Amino acid sequence: METDVIVIGAGAAGMMAAASASQRGRGVTLIDHSERLAEKIRISGGGRCNFTNTQTTAERYLSRNPHFCKSALAQYTAQDFIDLVNRYGIAWHEKKLGQLFCDKSAQDIIDLLQAECDLGGTVWRTGTAIQGITKTNTGFQVDTLQERWQCQSVIIATGGLSIPPIGATGFGYEIAKQFGLPITPLAAALVPLTFEPKDLFNELAGVSLDCDAHGGEGPNFRENVLFTHRGVSGPAILQISSYWRPGQEIALDLLPGRDAHALFEEAKRADTLLPNVLADWLPKRFAQAFCEAIVPIKPMKQYTVRELDSVAQRLHNWRVVPSGSQGYKKAEVTRGGVDTDALSSKTLMSKNVPGLFFVGEVVDVTGWLGGYNFQWAWSSGWVAGQYA
């Protein structure tokens, strides 16, 4: 069988690529090993899909080449996708930090993408496993169990390794290696971090607090931290996890925008116990466990100035070393991927294999939490569809 373009992977980037290519008149076949479309979209944003972010810039992405994503993000912007959502009459709202969510359900976004593919006449092949891809004189041969396809271009949109229970595999990386494209180191990103059972984190499960968090080479993130039975999660931790490397410290300012020294100055002559003073600004259970871990608990008036200075410093710069992360099963995305040096930033096509494109999470472009990874999927998918 013959077609112009085969897109492998019917997730966010794949459906966007298929819609983009088919609506410019290309014959497109979209193949996915799963029967159900876009499971990652379906479960995202608590089922409401944080589909983009109004603050999208290249600075919100991690990559070995931080400039690579600029072209695609400029060619198809967050506003372009918002306009598409509006054309379909999908109700949405902005939460915080530019994050946009569907009012009703993530299914609205899946239906939109499916409709956009159908508008261009995309041929669907779900529940179909790829047996092999080979280069030919005129393009590529793609073999499935049921069919053999000849095409001019192949777009790999198979995602990363995150959330294997919904079908994630390393297929895209295998294809890249087959055709000689290098892969940068892979790791779970936007993922909860773990600590040893001996650490105090286990006893704080369920406690949440506002923190300024920092880890690895990345920026600080002011968001909530949630303590779990295995360690720490919450938006601030998910953000810094993308920059963190095993063995590195993370630093938490437990009182961002406040002054622990000033709090202690007001209370230093009182009979009140230190955890009770901190409970004015921190969850009581956390204040108690934190103090027990770092200093003898006694009335405020019995502490020396040096002791209180030490506590204040720990509150504003609590340094801890995670034992690891919860891995791909709990990661929202995969850090690393197809090396951007091997791809054209303008087209997403392989520099050395004409007609072979890589888009979305399989590429070494990883966005912050908050809709940035979906925007990369829309932008990279749309761009590849324009050139495939």
Score class of each variant (00 low, 15 high):
T3E: 05
D4S: 12
G11M: 03
A13V: 10
M16H: 11
A17P: 00
A17F: 06
G25F: 03
I31P: 12
S34W: 00
E39V: 06
I41Q: 05
G46L: 09
T56E: 06
E59Y: 10
E59P: 02
L62N: 09
N65Y: 11
A74K: 14
T77C: 05
I82F: 03
D83C: 02
R87T: 13
K95I: 04
C102K: 03
D103W: 04
I109C: 02
Q114P: 10
A115L: 10
T126E: 11
V142Y: 11
D143P: 04
T144H: 09
L145T: 14
S153W: 12
T158C: 08
G160A: 06
L161K: 11
S162A: 12
A168M: 03
F179S: 07
F179I: 08
L186G: 02
L186N: 01
A188Y: 00
L193T: 01
P197H: 07
D212K: 12
G215E: 00
G216F: 06
P219H: 08
N220A: 12
V225P: 00
W244Y: 05
L252I: 08
L254A: 06
L254M: 03
P256L: 03
D259Q: 11
A262D: 11
F264R: 08
E266V: 13
D271R: 12
E292R: 13
I297H: 12
K298Q: 14
E307D: 11
Q313H: 05
H316G: 15
S323T: 15
V333N: 01
V338R: 01
T347E: 01
S350D: 00
E361Q: 01
T366R: 01
T366Y: 04
T366S: 10
W368N: 15
A377K: 02
G385P: 10
